[in-house]
C-alpha cells in the first residue's frame, strides 16, 4: 500500500522565504557598508561587527534562555537590525554603547513584543532614539568622513550639515551665509558629509533602494510618498523665503532622509499592509520630518517621525483596506 501526502491546495510554493527577503535587504545595504568603511575605516568595521554580533547574540540568548524556544538567528532578521543599527550611529560611538543599542533593539523593541513580525516599532530606530536620548553628546559628535586613502590619523569631528543649518538659521543667519559651510550636493551624493555611518552617501543608499525595488522586497509607495511630501512641503517654505528655509534638495540629501525612506520606513514588519495605507504613512513621515527639522528641538526628525507613524500603523491598517474586487461594479447592465 502506497502512502501519499494529503494536504490542502495549493500544492506548490513560490519559493520566497523570510530568509531570502532578509538577505536581500542585507545585499541592498552592501554599497552603503562599503562607503562607510571607505570613509570611516576601521571604526566603521568595529561598529558594524559589534552591532551585528550584539544583535545576533541577544536574539539567541533571549530565545534560548528566556523564551526557551527554537532560535531564529539564521533567518537574517537580527542581522538586518544589526547593520541598520550600525548605520544609525556615528562611527566613533564607544563600543559599550553599541552593545547597549543592540540590547535595546533586540530585547526591548523586538523580543518583548513577541519576536519577529510582532514588533510595532522598528527595532533599530528604537535603539537609535534610546541612545540619542541617553548619550546625546556621543550620538551627535560626528566624525567628518575622510577617505581611507587620505590616511588614518586625525579624525576630525564636526556637526552635520543639518546641524549647521539649524543652528545658523536659529542664530539669525541666512542660507546664503551658511552655504559655504555645508558640503555641496555632489559631496552629499558621494558621501562626503558628516553623519551617522549609513547616512553619508546618498548614492549608495539609492543603489540599495533600486535593488530592493527590483527584487520586490519593497514597493515604491513609502519612499515616493515620504520624499515627495518632503520635497513639496519644504519646497513651499523655501519658495516663500529661500533665505530662511533650506531648499528641498538639501532636505532630501542630508541627514537620515534617504536611509529612513529606503531602509527604515519600508521595514515590512512595522509599516502598513496596503499600498494606500503606505502612501498615507509615507506622507505622515515626510510631513513630521520637516516639521521637526524646521520647528523642533532637534536638527534631525526622520527617526522620530517614523517611530510616531509606526504607532499609528494599526489605525492606518483599519482605515485603508485594499481595493476589493467587485466593490465598485463596472457596467452592470441588469439593473
Amino acid at each position: 500500500m502506497n502512502m501519499f501526502t494529503v494536504s490542502g491546495s495549493p500544492h506548490v510554493h513560490g519559493d520566497d522565504s523570510t530568509k531570502k527577503i532578509m538577505y536581500g535587504v542585507v545585499y541592498a545595504m552592501i554599497p552603503a557598508i562599503l562607503v562607510s568603511v571607505y570613509f570611516f575605516g576601521l571604526d566603521a568595521i568595529r561598529v558594524l561587527v559589534l552591532s551585528v554580533i550584539g544583535c545576533l547574540f541577544f536574539e539567541w540568548v533571549i530565545q534560548k534562555y528566556l523564551i526557551k524556544g527554537g532560535t531564529t538567528i539564521n533567518d537574517g532578521s537580527a542581522l538586518v537590525t544589526g547593520i541598520l543599527l550600525a548605520f544609525n550611529v556615528p562611527s566613533n560611538l564607544p563600543s559599550w554603547m553599541i552593545i547597549i543599542g543592540a540590547l535595546v533593539a533586540i530585547g526591548m523593541a523586538k523580543m518583548s513584543f513577541g519576536g519577529l513580525g510582532k514588533n510595532i516599532f522598528n527595532p533599530a530606530l528604537v535603539a537609535r532614539v534610546f541612545l540619542l536620548i541617553s548619550f546625546p553628546v556621543q550620538m551627535t559628535s560626528w566624525p567628518k568622513p575622510k577617505a581611507i586613502t587620505e590616511g588614518l590619523a586625525d579624525v576630525v569631528t564636526g556637526p552635520t550639515p543639518l546641524g549647521i543649518v539649524k543652528e545658523g538659521l536659529d542664530a539669525g543667519k541666512t542660507m546664503s551665509e551658511l552655504k559655504p559651510q555645508i558640503p555641496t550636493y555632489m559631496q552629499d551624493l558621494m558621501g562626503q558629509m558628516g553623519g551617522s555611518m549609513g547616512e553619508v552617501s546618498a548614492l549608495a543608499l539609492i543603489l540599495g533602494g533600486i535593488y530592493m525595488l527590483v527584487k520586490k522586497i519593497i514597493t515604491w509607495h513609502i519612499p515616493v510618498s515620504m520624499l515627495g511630501t518632503v520635497v513639496i512641503f519644504s519646497g513651499i517654505l523655501w519658495g516663500f523665503n529661500p533665505e530662511h528655509y533650506a531648499d528641498p534638495v538639501f532636505h532630501l540629501l542630508t541627514g537620515g532622509m534617504l536611509l529612513g525612506a529606503i531602509f527604515m520606513a519600508t521595514d515590512m514588519v512595522s509599516c502598513p499592509m496596503t499600498k494606500r495605507g503606505q502612501l498615507v504613512y509615507g506622507f505622515g513621515i515626510g510631513l513630521l520630518t520637516i516639521l521637526i527639522r524646521i520647528w523642533g528641538a532637534y536638527p534631525e526628525g526622520v527617526s522620530f517621525a517614523i517611530l510616531f507613524m509606526n504607532a499609528v500603523v494599526p489605525l492606518i491598517n483599519k482605515a485603508f483596506k485594499p481595493k476589493r474586487f467587485g466593490a465598485k461594479p463596472g457596467v452592470a447592465i441588469n439593473q
Binding site: T18, I21, L116, G117, T219, M268, P322, F325, G326, A327
Partner: peptide, 21 residues
C-alpha cells in the same frame, strides 16, 4: 515548508485577485 512567523510583508494582500487581506 516549515511555517514561520508572519513578517507582515503584505505579499499575500498584493497577490489576492479578490482584494482581500
Amino acid at each position: 515548508k516549515v511555517e514561520s512567523p508572519c513578517i507582515r510583508c503584505s505579499k499575500c494582500t498584493y497577490v489576492c485577485p479578490m482584494g482581500l487581506e
